[in-house]
Simulated assay, not measured.
Amino acid sequence: MQFLSEDLDTYIVNHSENEPELLQQLTRETYQKILQPRMLSGHYQGRILSMISKLINPKCILEVGTYTGYSALCLAEGLHKEGMLHTIDINEELQDFQRQYFDKSAYGKQIHQYVGDAIEIIPLINEDFDIVFIDADKENYANYFELIIDKLVPGGIILSDNVLWSGKVLDTKFKKEDTSTPALIEYNKLLKQDSRVETVILPIRDGLTISRKK
C-alpha cells in the first residue's frame, strides 16, 4: 500500500542510505527465481530495520519469517560483535538460498537458521532477545507475541510487519476465507492494550509497528 505519491516516495528513498550491493543482488535473484518476490522488505524498509538495529546494537535477534534473507541481513548489520541472529521459516526449499547470501555477508557465522513451525521452535531457543522481527503468517502474530514477550529483555523491541495490510484493517466486513485481516485487527488491538509494551505504528510500506517492552 502506498501512502505517499510515487514522486515523494522516490525522493525519500533517494535521500536515505544507499542499499548495499549484496542486498541489490539478493533482490534481483529473488525476483528472478522465487515466488512472491514482493514479500521482500526492500531498500527503504531494509534501511529502517538496519538503523533500528544499529541504534540498539543487539546481542540477540529473533526473526519470525526469513523468506530469502533480506530483512535478516539488514538486522544483522547492527549486531553486537558477539551477537547472534536466530531466524525461522517454514519453507525448507528456501534454506539453501538464504544461506548462500548469509555466507556472502560479513554476518554468516552470526546467523542461525531454523526450518519449521515457529510456534514449536521459539520455546526451544534458550535466549533473551533484544529485537524481535515478526513477518510471517498473520494468523499467528498474537501467538508469536505471547511466546516472545517474556523472552524479550526490558527495553527490547518487537517489530511487526504488514500491520496495515493494504488498508484492510479498516474493513468492517471481510470475506469468510480472509483470516489474515481479522487476525491483524486483533493483533493491533493487543499491542495497543497490553500494558507490557508501548507501541507506535509507522505508515511505512504496508505498516510497521514498533513495540517497546516496558
Rank of each mutant, 00 (worst) to 15 (best):
I61T: 03
K59W: 04
K176A: 10
G207W: 02
E21V: 07
L191E: 11
F174E: 08
L22G: 03
F102P: 12
F174H: 11
S166V: 09
D137F: 12
L62G: 04
Q100T: 15
K189N: 15
Q25L: 05
Q110Y: 12
T27F: 01
D150I: 09
P58L: 02
K54R: 02
I34K: 02
L8R: 01
I149E: 13
E146C: 07
V197P: 05
K173L: 10
G156N: 08
T179D: 12
K213H: 07
L55M: 15
Q98C: 15
V132M: 12
E186F: 09
F133G: 02
F133Y: 10
L124C: 10
D178Q: 06
T30M: 01
L22P: 06
A76C: 13
A76W: 11
V169E: 06
S53Y: 00
K109H: 15
I185L: 09
L184G: 13
L22A: 04
N188L: 07
D9H: 02
M1Q: 09
D161V: 03
Q98T: 03
E186Q: 14
I122S: 11
T30E: 00
I52D: 09
K214N: 12
F145A: 10
Q24P: 06
D150W: 03
L208S: 05
L202W: 00
E17P: 05
F133T: 03
A142Q: 13
G167N: 02
C60K: 11
T66F: 01
Q32Y: 01
I125M: 13
N143I: 12
F3G: 04
G116L: 05
E19W: 02
Y141C: 09
I210R: 00
T27V: 02
F102Q: 01
Q110D: 14
K214Y: 11
E82H: 05
T68P: 01
Y67Q: 00
E93P: 11
S180V: 11
H112I: 15
D96C: 13
L124S: 14
G46I: 06
S211Y: 07
N57L: 03
T181D: 14
Y114R: 04
E146V: 07
T68Y: 02
H86A: 03
Y187H: 15
